[in-house]
Design a protein around this nucleic acid. Structure first.
Lengths: 343, 343
DNA sequence: AATCAATTTCAAAGCGCTTTGGATGACCGG
DNA sequence: CCGGTCATCCAAAGCGCTTTGAAATTGATT
């Protein structure tokens, strides 16, 4: 069933049918109802490509699948983020499209998106410090929004981000108030902007309390379970092991816990742990009482908010880029406690 | 830059340029080279929608985002599966498109996909026992492939699945050989087909060894860390606790390990654990030695294979549906050991 | 009854591509 | 020099929709 046959069956022109369906005022209520009824009866939907061709809009949002170079790792937040964003997008009639390519080809994908007119806008994930994709997208003229921010990029761009610095600063302060002085940081790759900011927050809290940061207590890499485990094992074997650990992800925190327990220690008593928690649907931080004390911020909600911002941006392309800062809440669970007395 | 201007610039007709670019034989090598060079210079790409409209193909694969009803949970394998599938699809010029809707509306999405001509085919995730989406898609006439299978559906359909029954049977036999008699099963929701099959494998192994299955040792629900934890706590508190546990997911297994260790027991000595491992990129089962003994099968590879099958299916729509069975390997790690002596 | 404005409808152009059904030359043997 | 065959290339139709500009109809006003 297409417009033409539908119009013929109704004895109307394609123009009128199209207008009736798209809510234009120049069609009588009676006709509109008649058309809508017939459309429903035949389960008529305008062909996406024809409509797109005529309107010049794809009604598709593109996203390059974020995979890290080192371990070919797919970001674990991917599913939940998409679930959030997708919900908002579909309300506005947008579909989401994904492309995965070797990292080096990412800019080629954006150029191709643009040349093919395949998408109306893109979402940029996992921004680095001074991420060159931002100037590139601006130059290409492809509307976009960043999930996160990029330190060092001065040109304007839209973003949605968690206040990583503040949340890590507060969390570190919380540990300091509990008496901890040797606080470790198990962070993501510090080429990533978020990791940079979290470290800044951590350092700010230490500085405020006049605690000299110890480079031996600051680790950063891809946030796997194994990374959390191995770094914790190493640090707990030091002469002056940390009494508390800040972690950048729940998955790493699971490894941290494993290392603590395998060392015969108890998390929350011998070693305190605070982790950032993206509130992933498949990795809930405890059902009743949170297992980990955490800086929590739902990445699914971030997806919803970001999608809304991007839709706005598409609709008013000349407005200056709007951004949204999300605050993480500090959730006190059972992984933190007063610093153990020095022996 | 579009076909028309490109053709004008070259002093050729659109026909010739189009043919040159699409590899048709009726254009001289010299012309073809000239055209290709110009296209590269201008970074010309045919407009997706115009091309789709003319060819009648969308070059898009659709997928409804699998979210479970209960916990609004996004399947943790989503990211890795997509990463795998997307790699293959992009080689063939297909994009992947996702739609997320409340579960009840899923069939409406398929009808809409079809009516709008939005996609050439869809991927069906997380099939249930007797999954009614399969007859629906067949009836709608939307090409599809299932990631998994659906017991009770007799009509033909294409699928790619892991041999869940066999892998769980082998793994259970392995535990039995180690002397375990009280073996628990912490399974996914048993409305899911894969969970059904895994249980069948588990039961077959018990039956073979003449061990009566104990309903108190068989648990099934959404596979979260917390579920693994809570069920294990419960079972370890029983009069006759299990000495071994089969788990359906790494994430649940992490909870199982936590419960074992919090109970003051040691995994691999007091309680053995075997889990299914989808080989997720962000949840590697140990870097060097596997932490868990596991039935391993890369879901990313499954995505690649499935994508290839679906492309074949699109290209030869009249051929009978082809399917692929993947075998999981039993990977022996440090979570299993001989059954402890009865005390 | 004539005029005008508002309402309702329509024919046709256009979006950018593919593809059908020729047309144009070049080349060849006779 | 002529008809036939190839190798090249082209004009135009068509994919299914939106939208422009105009026409037909209606109702109100003079």
């Amino acid at each position: 069933m297409n417009l033409k046959t539908l119009a013929e069956e109704l004895g109307l022109s394609q123009t009128t049918v199209s207008r009736a369906l798209n809510g234009y005022p120049e069609v009588s209520e009676a006709t509109r109802r008649r058309v809508e009824e017939a459309a429903r009866r035949h389960n008529y939907r305008p062909n996406s490509r024809a409509k797109g061709l005529a309107t010049g809009r794809a009604m598709v949002i593109g996203q390059v699948i974020p995979t890290s170079v080192q371990h070919e790792m797919v970001n674990p937040i991917f599913g939940d983020f998409v679930a959030g964003a997708s919900l908002t997008f579909s309300r506005f009639g947008y579909d989401m499209m994904f492309t995965r390519v070797p990292d080096a080809d990412e800019s080629a994908v954006y150029r191709e998106y643009r040349a093919r007119g395949a998408v109306d806008a893109v979402i940029l994930q996992g921004p680095l410090v001074e991420d060159q994709r931002i100037p590139l997208l601006n130059q290409i003229g492809l509307p976009f929004i960043v999930h996160g921010r990029s330190t060092g990029i001065t040109e304007p761009y839209a973003w949605v981000d968690v206040n990583n610095k503040r949340s890590f600063q507060h969390a570190t302060e919380f540990l300091i108030h509990l008496g901890h002085r040797r606080i470790a940081l198990i962070n993501g790759l510090e080429t990533m902007d978020f990791a940079q900011r979290r470290r800044a927050g951590y350092l700010a809290a230490l500085a405020e309390a006049a605690i000299a940061p110890d480079p031996a207590l600051m680790r950063s890499d891809e946030m796997t379970e194994h990374f959390g485990y191995s770094q914790t094992r190493q640090m707990l074997a030091m002469d002056q092991p940390p009494t508390a650990i800040m972690a950048s992800s729940m998955i790493a925190a699971l490894g941290i816990r494993r290392a603590i327990e395998e060392s015969g220690l108890t998390m929350g008593r011998d070693v305190s742990v605070i982790t950032h928690d993206d509130d992933l649907s498949y990795l809930k931080n405890g059902q009743d009482v949170p297992i980990f004390t955490a800086t929590r911020s739902s990445v699914r909600k971030a997806g919803e908010v970001l999608a809304q911002c991007l839709v706005d941006r598409i609709n008013t392309p000349d407005a200056p880029p709007q951004s949204r800062m999300l605050e993480a809440e500090l959730l006190v669970g059972r992984s933190t406690g007063p610093a153990p007395q020095r022996t």
